[in-house]
Nucleic acid binder design. Structure first.
Lengths: 340, 340
DNA sequence: TTGAAAGCGCTAACAT
DNA sequence: ATGTTAGCGCTTTCAA
């Protein structure tokens, strides 16, 4: 085997293996790539040489020749500095990785804030065959990202974003529909006034959920009141603060709807401390079934979609050979807990 | 600009830019790489040509020539199928990505189970300059991984693992010391019997924590009793089940120590439901300060280390130019909550 | 079934 | 300051 890279001996290349096995480089290449064409006797000689020299193929050589990187980039842009910390994002990555690895692709991950886009080295060097993008921010932010990545001339898939251009694919959970499920459920439980906790951050998913709630309530009865407050962030303290402020000045609503589970649970604790019984005095729902809900009592009513499947679908769209543009909306289901 | 890849025109290469700008390829290369040597007038002509052709450099060509990939691989092996789902892992990745991106490196992520190691394409094709590895499992499992990656002949950094070989670096949180902090704290609060909730899975961090607890308690007093139970997994239900089983047959201890926060919080709910007051009747501590603790009342006493810093330190070790082998143990601090 | 030659896009080394 | 040449390791193409 070639000496360690700290030594002087360089790594074995195809030609070294060929020389060692007494065959041509093409034969070695064919063995590496499992081409059936090689005689089994020859193949064995080659494999022996490979092991002896500790040969490992070099992706760069292959990529240069074939113009295929066998890699997909994942761009996670979050100006809210939570970066990767959301378990949803983590599950999306798991889905991406799983699907890509099955297909023989590598996953190149880049986390950052949008202002650091200039510095994204790999993606600006044709390191990847396709790009999957998940970004915080409003539609304008997404549009900016779309422009910034257009010149890479690779298929792009946006996750949890409105179709921003005809030349990119999108993968979304059915946020609008999930909100209708919540609205239906609350109405069926007798709710006539609901307080929605939004954030000042403009996420596509959040606005879809608000749209669905409005539509859902309106479709059932004009009597149902819906108010909205905006927390500075979706963090625990900010959410509680925003809610306290509202409750101090307004009549207590029948239900509180957090636009995600984190805010819903923060709200729940706040309401409990104010002596309200859940669900008798007030009902609570969230969105997006965070793992957190398993650890909190009472169990939160929420809607569940699979971020893993979102990742897998994004991977699929990124590497599909015809490069078809898709706009998928993945299914969600109501998860009835004890807070409604 | 070159037509889309679905078209017939191929992407612009360095030579195309050179022709367009009326300079040699080396001049273009020097511009791309910000070499000061180029006259600003020439540079501008080149940049104009780059923009006109929509030129994007190809990493493969550069890598092939320079034998440097500007990429670090992250191998996350978890046979427990939680994969990426642990927020700790996510934070580690954030730290890795942050540090690597600053240094101009890409991060190639591979998630999987250990039996799928054979199929790890990228890392077996010299796609990366170094490898960072985080694996579940006991020491034997880690050793296997060490062997499986040795032939890649790149620097390797193991996270949360005992130094498995002189040729790899390790980055750990100070789990042993953190357990001593917990032991000291509990003893100071008058605890004389503690129940430790472990899992059947053999994590290096967990065994370090157990070792620290034992040592910590023993150093204070021979009177302190320490018992251990093993939950099937660190999940909510498994943990509760294991604890119930113990409590039904044994006197209630003064304190319960979960080997991580998830188990501690599952235990807390279980104990509360049995009517025990926390911390008056029984005290609880966890390890590793999960975000979860912000959402649960009362606030858990735990120890806090920074997984982000672990990731950053691993990145640092992976790309440090002298390829020095390091074995770092990052600091932790006790976070006093309301459960002790 | 195997081999020889060319060249993918880039940069180190050298030449001007 | 800019240009020329060679070659990194691989696979496509064509020849034997």
């Amino acid at each position: 085997m070639a000496k360690s890279r700290t030594g002087t001996t360089k790594r074995a290349a195809l030609s070294d293996v060929a020389a060692e096995a007494g065959v041509s480089v093409m034969t070695v290449s064919n063995v590496i790539n499992n081409k059936e064409i090689v005689r089994s006797q020859t193949r064995e000689r080659v494999i022996k040489a490979i092991n002896k020299l500790g040969y490992v193929p070099t992706q760069a050589g292959r990529s240069l020749r074939t113009n295929k990187q066998w890699a997909v980039g994942f761009l996670l842009i979050d100006d809210n500095a939570r970066y990767f910390n959301d378990p949803l994002n983590a599950e999306i990555i798991a889905g991406l990785s799983d699907r890509l690895n099955r297909a023989g692709f590598s996953l190149v991950v880049e986390l950052g804030k949008s202002h650091s886009l200039q510095k994204i080295n790999g993606f600006h060097r044709r390191l990847v065959d396709a790009l999957v993008i998940l970004s915080s921010g409003d539609a304008a932010n997404i549009a900016k990202l779309e422009k910034a990545t257009a010149n890479l001339d690779v298929p792009r898939v946006f996750i949890q974003a409105a179709p921003v251009s005809k030349s990119v694919s999108t993968i979304n959970l059915s946020d609008y529909e999930s909100a209708m499920l919540i609205a239906d459920h609350l109405a069926a439980r007798g709710v006539t006034s609901a307080l929605v906790i939004d954030t000042k951050l403009q996420w596509h998913a959040f606005s879809e959920r608000k749209r669905g709630l409005k539509k859902g309530f309106a479709a059932i009865s004009k009597e149902i009141q819906m108010s909205t407050i905006k927390s500075t962030s979706e963090g625990y303290e900010d959410t509680r603060e925003a809610l306290e402020l509202y409750l101090d000045k307004n009549p207590t609503p029948d239900a509180v709807v957090g636009l995600n589970d984190y805010m819903a649970i923060a709200a729940m604790q706040c309401l409990q401390e104010r002596g309200l019984r859940i669900p008798q005095d007030i009902k609570i729902t969230g969105f997006n079934s965070a793992e957190l809900i398993n650890y909190v009592t009472p169990r939160l009513t929420t809607v569940h979609g699979s971020p893993f499947d979102v990742g897998a679908a994004a991977a699929e769209a990124a590497i599909n050979p015809e490069q078809k543009i898709v706009n998928h909306r993945l299914p969600v289901a109501l998860v009835r807990g004890d807070t409604t």
